[in-house]
């Protein structure tokens, strides 16, 4: 296993979450339960309070040999349109394919299955082909842009007490990644105009919904529509 220290920018995230939970005077499961209730019925949100995240656990479940030793820094998001409308849940994480790396080199995306809402790994993408930006700091939104022009927006989810801290980790990570990639040290989309002007690509910056999200959306929310995703 890769030691947690390996990702200096995320090593203390879970610890902070635990501290926050104990520090509010109501210990253990009770406050966790309350936090879950506050999140509505979102099962995915519950995991942020306990040990490894959903994605990490999914990889550890034994179905993904090659990915099981990854240390994943992950958060739960909802996909939003450019104008902030909410589409669907996405868990996004970064991982390093080798313990020798100082920074993560892979982006992982996962989402609930249509059938029963269990988390399913959707994609694994080399970070060298993906750019991550802070899209709207106040709303805690990130922009994910693939080198092929696909782009989508994710808004951080989670208990209010820990969300700022968690978003801060992403911001730090993005600074590191942008610095490493030589993209200029500031990973923001808004203050710096549209980053597409910098890259000067003729690729349309299409808003990309994960696998045709608009169609998928109903399907995802209605487990009855597909009997196929038997996870």
């Amino acid at each position: 296993m890769v030691p947690a220290l390996f990702f200096p920018w995320c090593s203390s995230l879970r610890a902070h979450q635990r501290a926050g939970r104990c520090g509010d005077g109501r210990h253990g499961p009770k406050s966790a339960l309350r936090a879950v209730r506050e999140m509505g019925s979102s099962g995915l949100a519950a995991c942020a309070l306990e040990g490894p995240g959903w994605l990490q656990r999914h990889l550890l479940s034994g179905e993904f040999d090659q990915l099981r030793n990854f240390t994943v820094f992950e958060s739960n998001f909802v996909q939003v349109t450019r104008f902030g409308e909410v589409a669907n849940k996405v868990t996004m994480g970064v991982a390093a394919s080798s313990p020798a790396l100082e920074l993560p080199d892979l982006l992982l995306l996962a989402g609930p299955t249509k059938e029963n809402g269990c988390l399913q790994l959707l994609g694994l993408f080399p970070l060298q082909f993906v750019q991550l930006y802070i899209h709207d700091e106040s709303r805690q939104q990130l922009k994910v842009k693939f080198c092929t022009g696909r782009a989508f927006y994710l808004q951080l989810q989670g208990p209010a007490e820990t969300r700022d801290l968690e978003f801060g980790k992403w911001v730090r990570l993005l600074y590191h990644l942008h610095f490493q990639a030589g993209q200029g040290a500031v990973p923001f989309t808004q203050e710096w105009g549209d980053e597409d002007e910098e890259t000067g690509g003729d690729q349309e910056d299409r808003e990309w919904d994960w696998r045709d999200q608009l169609q998928d959306r109903e399907a995802r929310l209605d487990p009855q529509t597909s009997e196929l995703w038997g996870l």
Partner: peptide
């Protein structure tokens, strides 16, 4: 013989 790894499925806290 193979232990089942931790599940990545959402559960209600009651089920933990």
């Amino acid at each position: 013989s193979t232990p089942v790894g931790p599940s990545a499925c959402p559960r209600s806290p009651r089920d933990t």
